[in-house]
Amino acid sequence: MATPAVVKAATARKRRRSTSARPRSVAARTDYERWKVKTAANRVQREAAERALARYADQAAKAKRELLHHRDAIREGGGTPPHLPSQLADIDPPDTDPTEENDL
């Protein structure tokens, strides 16, 4: 059976590992890789960070296209897609149809 000190040390190691992990969202990873490009110590590290930055930028563009496709599919099915946060307003601008009937 592990002593409380051993358990406490193992928990602290897990916590350090989880907080020092790379960001999970594509936007956060893009920012992280952009920072790595700026702070690279040598050419090899900078090139690796630039490749990762390009990869994450491609992932973000693909995710935006897929989101737009899914929102279009919802509309084609007669539904109304949910509102998007302001960060995603460029994907699918809100409808601004002046002929919409709001006064019933």
Rank of each mutant, 00 (worst) to 15 (best):
N42M: 06
V44G: 08
V37W: 00
R29M: 06
E66D: 13
R51V: 11
I74T: 12
P23W: 02
E47A: 12
R24D: 07
A52R: 14
A41Q: 06
R17M: 06
A48F: 04
R24F: 02
N42T: 08
E33F: 07
A63H: 03
L67P: 05
T80M: 01
A54V: 09
K64Y: 01
A21C: 10
V37I: 09
H70K: 15
V26K: 00
Q45A: 15
A48W: 03
A73L: 09
G79L: 07
R17D: 03
K38A: 10
K36Y: 00
G78K: 02
H83P: 13
T30P: 05
R43N: 13
A41R: 11
R29K: 14
H69D: 12
K38I: 08
H83D: 12
A21H: 07
A63F: 02
A57N: 10
K36R: 15
V37E: 04
A54S: 11
L68F: 03
S18W: 04
A49I: 14
E50G: 10
N42L: 08
S20I: 14
R51Y: 06
D58N: 11
P81A: 14
Q45H: 09
T39K: 12
K62A: 12
K62C: 02
T19Q: 09
A48D: 07
S18Q: 14
A60M: 05
V44A: 10
H83S: 14
R55F: 04
L53M: 07
A28Q: 05
V26S: 00
N42S: 09
G77T: 15
R71A: 04
T19V: 11
A27R: 14
N42K: 07
R65C: 07
R71V: 09
D58F: 01
R75H: 06
T39V: 11
A73K: 11
V44L: 05
I74E: 08
K38N: 11
A41H: 06
Q59I: 02
S18F: 07
L67A: 04
D58S: 12
T39N: 14
Y56N: 07
A40V: 11
S18Y: 06
A52W: 01
N42A: 09
A61V: 04
R75M: 07
L67M: 11
E50W: 02
E50V: 10
D58P: 00
D72F: 00
